[in-house]
Every structure is written in C-alpha cells, then in structure tokens.
C-alpha cells in the first residue's frame, strides 16, 4: 500500500514512456516528421552509416577519456579523504559537494571564460611569461574533455571515497609489517578492496558522459557531435523521432551492458 503511489507514478512516467521509446525505435518517420505505425529495422541499420559510427566512436572516446582522467585525479583525492581525520573528512566531503550543487551550465560558463581566446588562461600564461599569443582551445574536443572532467569529478570521488573509507587501517598495517612496500600495499590491498567504488564511480561518470550534449554544444563548437547531440537533434531539430529513439536504445543497451559487467564483480548495495 505504502509503495503504491511511487510505483504507480514510476510506471506511468518512466516504464510506459521507456516502452514507448523502444516501440518508436522500430517505427517509421512520416512525411511531416510524425511517427507512422509501420515496422522497420532501418533506424538501427542507419546507425551503421560511417557518419553515425564516427559519432558513436567519438562519444566512446570522450566518455572513456573522461572516466580515465577523473579516475586519475579522483583516486588519490578519495584515498586522502578516506584516511584523513574525521573532522577533515566531513569538511572535504562538503567541499566536494558544493561545486556539484552549483548549476552545471554555470560551471561550463566559467570554463568558457577561462579557455576562450583572449580569455583568462591566455592572460595567465602571458603574465607568467610562459606563452604568448592565443591558445586555440575552446570549441575543440579538448575543451569538451576539460568541461566533462570538471563536471563529473564528484561522481567519481564520492563512490571511491565510500569504498576506500571502509578499508581497515589494520589491514594496511599488516601488509606493511609483512614487508610490503607502499606500492605493493596499494596494488595488493587497497586496489582490490576499493574495486566496488572504482567500478561504481566509473559507471557514474561514463554513462552520463555518453549521453551528455550540453558540454559539446557549448564548448565543442560545431565540430564535436556526440551521441547525446545526435539524439537531441533528431527530436528537437530534424524531427526524426524513430531514428533518435534507435540511437537512444543503443545508449540504453550500452548502459545495461556496463551494469551487468558491474554486478559481476561488486555487490548490488554499492550501486548508489
């Protein structure tokens, strides 16, 4: 009884719409951008067009690079937080969350101010005497990567922290006492025990990064088109809903595949 309102709501506004989306992906586009009830697999075969394969590949590359870089930046930070005194930990956790709560468009805008030609980074580099002249960074895939890393870093740090925090100090001491050098302690103790957090963080970064279109829109210029942009364009610009739905289904399939992989080596509770 208690569950009924939420279940009914989520069935109505989540399960039914997603089923409709799946159905739309095998229907045809009508002459006026409407959806016609005629079964076709064309929407999926069209995705194999080199143009769209490139978009998919670019998305995988950028999402993958974002995941790898947030992991490299976030892992030492999460480890430091997990081993810091209790009071420092809660302050650090709060400090990670505050930028995360400021609107993500605002954060993108901050980076546009920094990266644009004649912008603050150029001024800083010139001021330090490191580099004179313009840096052509904004409106390139590199800018998209910078923006994505900044957006998604907290998603990586939080699950990593949650997982690393649980590691018992005694286990580290035991490994060290038995003669393991710091790197060995990391590889043999910390890394395996923190694996659920690493996997959760990677999924929480990779999945939304694959569907992200606001960062490429604002920082990538016309040259960077990712799966998210493709889907958005089919729905709001080109009005080819069935094709957009097919692209979305590919995104969903990829997400599910990652989740299945994840549940193979982590217990379900660390998922969120």
């Amino acid at each position: 009884m208690l569950a009924a309102p939420a279940v009914i709501y989520l069935l109505t506004f989540l399960a039914v719409p997603l089923s409709l989306l799946a159905a739309t992906s095998v229907l045809s586009r009508g002459p006026y951008g409407d959806v016609v009830f005629k079964f076709t697999a064309d929407n999926y075969t069209r995705l194999f067009d080199p143009l769209y394969l490139k978009i998919l590949l670019d998305s995988l590359t950028i999402a993958g690079a974002t995941t790898a870089i947030t992991l490299l930046i976030g892992y030492p930070l999460a480890w430091w937080m997990a081993r810091a005194p209790q009071r420092v930990r809660s302050v650090a956790l709060f400090a990670i969350l505050v930028p995360f709560w400021t609107n993500f468009l605002i954060r993108i805008y901050a980076w546009i101010l920094i990266l644009r030609s004649g912008g603050l980074l150029e001024g800083l580099l010139a001021g330090l005497g490191l580099w004179r002249g313009s840096i052509e960074l904004l409106y390139t895939p590199w800018a998209v990567l910078i923006g994505m890393v900044y957006e998604f870093l907290p998603f990586m740090v939080l699950p990593l922290y949650a997982s690393l925090e649980k590691i018992d100090e005694a286990q580290l001491a035991a490994a060290a006492d038995l003669g393991a050098r710091p790197f060995q302690v990391f590889r043999r103790v910390v890394l395996p025990l923190g694996l659920p957090g690493l996997a959760a963080g990677s999924i929480l970064v990779f999945v939304p990064a694959m569907g992200m279109f606001a960062v490429p829109d604002l920082m990538g210029g016309a040259r960077t088109l990712l799966v998210g942009n493709l889907i958005r364009n089919q729905f709001l610009v080109a009005r080819d809903w069935p094709f957009g739905a097919a692209a979305a289904m590919v995104l969903v399939a990829l997400t599910l595949a990652l989740l299945v992989l994840y549940t193979r080596f982590a217990d379900q509770e660390t998922l969120v």
Binding site: A6, V7, L10, L11, L14, A15, P17, L18, L20, L21, V207, P208, M210, G211, F213, G228, I231, R232, F235, W241, G244, A245, A248, L251, V252, T255, L259, L271, V272
Partner: peptide
Amino acid sequence: LLYIAIIVPEVVLGIA
C-alpha cells in the same frame, strides 16, 4: 524501478 530511474540517461528520459 528506482534503479531504472537512476541509471537511465537523462536525455533518454527526456525524449521518452
């Protein structure tokens, strides 16, 4: 249902 709601990419929820 909760897990689906969390994991479904926002763009997919939007178009659905």
